[in-house]
Amino acid sequence: MAQFKDFNFKLLVIEQLMYTDETLTPQFHLVDLLRQKGLGDDAYNYAQQYGLAYKMVPEARDHFAALHIDDDLLAGVEELVMDGGLQVYQECAPIWDGEDDLFDVASLDDLALLPNLRRVFGSEFLTSEQRDVLVARGIVAD
Rank of each mutant, 00 (worst) to 15 (best):
D6R: 13
E22Q: 15
P94E: 06
S123I: 01
D132R: 07
Q3L: 13
I95G: 04
D72W: 07
A136E: 09
E124C: 01
L24F: 08
D32Q: 13
D100M: 05
D62K: 14
D100L: 08
E78R: 13
P58I: 09
D62N: 12
Y46D: 08
D41G: 08
A2Q: 12
V105M: 11
E124S: 08
D142T: 04
Y46E: 11
E15V: 10
L30P: 11
E91Y: 04
D142L: 01
L114W: 08
G51Y: 05
F9W: 14
L52N: 06
E15A: 13
K55S: 09
K10H: 14
R137M: 02
M82W: 01
R119L: 06
T20M: 10
S123V: 00
V88K: 03
A112N: 06
P115K: 06
M56Y: 00
T127K: 00
P94H: 03
R131D: 00
A66C: 06
V31W: 04
E79K: 12
G85T: 09
M56K: 15
D71N: 12
V133S: 00
E15H: 11
L52F: 06
D72T: 13
A66S: 15
Q49C: 01
L30K: 07
I95T: 05
T25W: 04
D21N: 13
G84T: 02
V135L: 09
F125N: 04
G51K: 04
V31A: 09
L102R: 12
V31Y: 03
P26E: 11
T127N: 01
G84I: 04
L52I: 08
N45T: 04
L24C: 14
D109V: 10
L80I: 10
C92W: 00
F28C: 11
